[in-house]
Simulated assay, not measured.
Amino acid sequence: MTIPADLKYTPSHEWVRVEADGTLTVGITHHAQDLLGDMVFIETPAAGRTLAKGEECAVVESVKAASDVYAPVAGEVIAANAEVEASPESVNKDAYSAWMFKLKPANPGDVAGLLDATAYQKLVESEAH
């Protein structure tokens, strides 16, 4: 299983990429899509929506189950990925390029509280046992 070292992670299996302008790109991890199976529907949050940390903001549905996607930090949604909504299977093909939304964090320092790749790997391994 691939866990890119340059990303941050949440215990609820979202990945977060910090962009050069300080915004965050968010998606679900390879592990999450692997557990869910073939994606059939994705609903992303609308641009302009303000989110609290941990707030349910998107939905992914697979042939097996539906799951919520949570905001990794508080902030404002500045973009949603219409392509991932139109082609949910893109998450199964490459979870780390199939982002769901972009977020302008209310407090950029909150990103430091997210998991790094090593901590996320340990979390995934602990769930497997």
Rank of each mutant, 00 (worst) to 15 (best):
P45W: 02
A5W: 00
E89A: 15
E19W: 02
E76P: 00
S12V: 12
Y9H: 04
L24S: 02
E56Y: 04
I78M: 11
A98W: 10
G75F: 05
E61W: 08
V73L: 07
D6N: 15
H13Q: 03
V60W: 01
A80H: 09
A32C: 12
S87A: 15
T29K: 03
M39K: 01
R17F: 00
P45V: 05
E85R: 08
E125Y: 04
N107S: 14
T25V: 12
T29A: 10
P72L: 03
H31I: 02
K93H: 06
P72R: 05
E125G: 11
T25F: 02
G22D: 05
G27M: 04
L35G: 11
V69E: 07
Y120R: 01
A80G: 15
E83M: 10
A95R: 08
V26D: 10
T50W: 01
D38I: 00
H13M: 03
A82R: 13
E43F: 09
A52V: 04
E61T: 06
W99M: 04
V91N: 08
E43L: 13
G37Y: 06
N81A: 02
L24F: 04
T2F: 05
T23M: 13
H31G: 01
D68Y: 08
I28T: 06
L24K: 11
V26W: 08
L103W: 09
D110T: 05
T29D: 11
E127T: 00
E14N: 09
L123A: 11
P72M: 01
A46C: 01
G109T: 13
N92Y: 07
I28R: 06
S126I: 01
V40Y: 13
D38Q: 04
C57N: 07
P108R: 10
T23N: 15
D68P: 00
A58L: 09
K53S: 13
A95Y: 05
Y96G: 05
P88L: 06
E19M: 14
G109N: 14
